[in-house]
């Protein structure tokens, strides 16, 4: 019979690897975007002392994805940032699976609650202005 679930130690190792991969990947994408940004707009003036809110394509997950695919520098940076934000979300999703395999139903529910809160924050707020 197949062994059910991972031990806590195995789970720790997998969570550690997942986090490391996510951080490394998002940092590389953001760095690539940063290099593009400097090559394309390096001599323009930054205007971050004034708050205007980012333009709408850089605010939504789909908009960022479209810009990143076009290799728009800010889109690529923002895509790296989204990958980073999704790293802890992936960690929580992975934990749901791990607790499920361990048949630890209390913690399946606890991690699902956290996952739902995270997913909800990614969905709401599109229409909201400042």
């Amino acid at each position: 019979m197949l062994r059910q679930g991972w031990t806590d130690e195995e789970m720790d190792q997998r969570i550690g690897n997942l986090l490391r991969t996510g951080v490394l990947l998002s940092a590389l994408v953001a760095l690539a975007g940063g290099i593009l940004l400097i090559l394309h707009e390096g001599s323009s003036k930054p205007h971050d002392e004034v708050f205007s809110g980012e333009p709408s394509p850089l605010r939504s997950f789909l908009g960022v994805l479209e810009d990143a695919v076009r290799l728009d520098p800010k889109g690529v940076v923002q895509f790296g940032i989204i990958l980073l934000v999704l790293t802890p979300v992936a960690r929580v999703a992975f934990s749901v699976l791990a607790f499920w395999r361990a048949r630890d139903w209390t913690y399946v529910i606890i991690t699902l609650v956290v996952l739902l809160i995270l997913v909800a924050t990614m969905m709401v707020g599109h229409h909201q202005k400042i």
């Binding site: 980012e54 520098p73 923002q78 989204i82 934000v85 802890p88 979300v89 960690r91």
Partner: peptide, 23 residues
Amino acid sequence: GVTAAASAGIYLQRGYIDPVVAM
């Protein structure tokens, strides 16, 4: 990380995350 991710999603959609500063 998880705590900050919960608010980062909201900040991003509100336009509070500027790639030029954040990167």
